[in-house]
Design a protein around this nucleic acid. Structure first.
Lengths: 111, 111
DNA sequence: ATTTATTATCGTAATATTACGATGAAATAA
DNA sequence: TTATTTCATCGTAATATTACGATAATAAAT
């Protein structure tokens, strides 16, 4: 039981849910906000910035990387993380598409 | 172990993550798309529309209601579901705020 | 009052996520 | 070479989510 029945849904629906799932943790929101506001590459200050263990942060970074919203480049012994601007705006667009198909013109006929 | 450490994060971060979590399932995306496109109140055709058990759909509807993005009003023996337009645009705005603080002007200095 | 229709809730099994210590890998410094 | 630093991955315990049958709750119809 218990497993999501992905085959019941369209690729688009599964992909949107996948993106939302990656955003669905405050640590990952915090990482994104930090990288977005820094607007630059950040070495692993992230472990300091957020109060979670190094292994946990690394796991969260991997999930963010999995949807391409951040990139990590090796820089000597450290790794630099930053936002992928193109992917960011793609994701923004995809989420907005969901909401924008609603026309609140028929506000009155309902409930 | 295993439980999200909400106390490490701001209310805003926790709330954004909460919203994303509700969107993080293809069935809930499908329900939203259906209600958004119908742009009207829908009686429980949702169980037909999506191939999950009635109890499961009811559970998904409750989660969507928990962030206020949909409303359910009792209509005789049925229940009418529809989008809450105000809450929808609030949520849209909150998600966009996250992305919009990024200025891709410094596209070149990075990674 | 009984049946029928529709939805919510409870209980629970299967699966997924979260967190972290321990360990590994890779580059630099000593 | 031998540390040291930084990050990833493995293993695993705690917790959360997903799905559904069974059952309750509510309103209408007979």
């Amino acid at each position: 039981m218990g497993a999501t029945q992905s085959h019941l849904f369209t690729d688009e629906q599964n992909e949107l849910a996948r993106i939302a799932r990656v955003l669905a943790h405050p640590a990952r929101i915090a990482i994104l906000q930090y990288l977005i506001q820094a607007n630059a590459c950040i070495n692993g200050d992230l472990v300091q910035e957020i109060g979670l263990a190094q292994a946990t942060i690394s796991q969260h970074l991997r999930e963010l990387k999995s949807i391409g919203i951040i990139q990590g480049t090796i820089d000597g012994v450290k790794v630099s993380y930053c936002i992928d601007p193109l992917r960011l705006s793609e994701i923004k667009k995809q989420l907005n598409q969901l909401f924008d198909s609603f026309s609140s013109s028929s506000l009155g006929n309902c409930c």
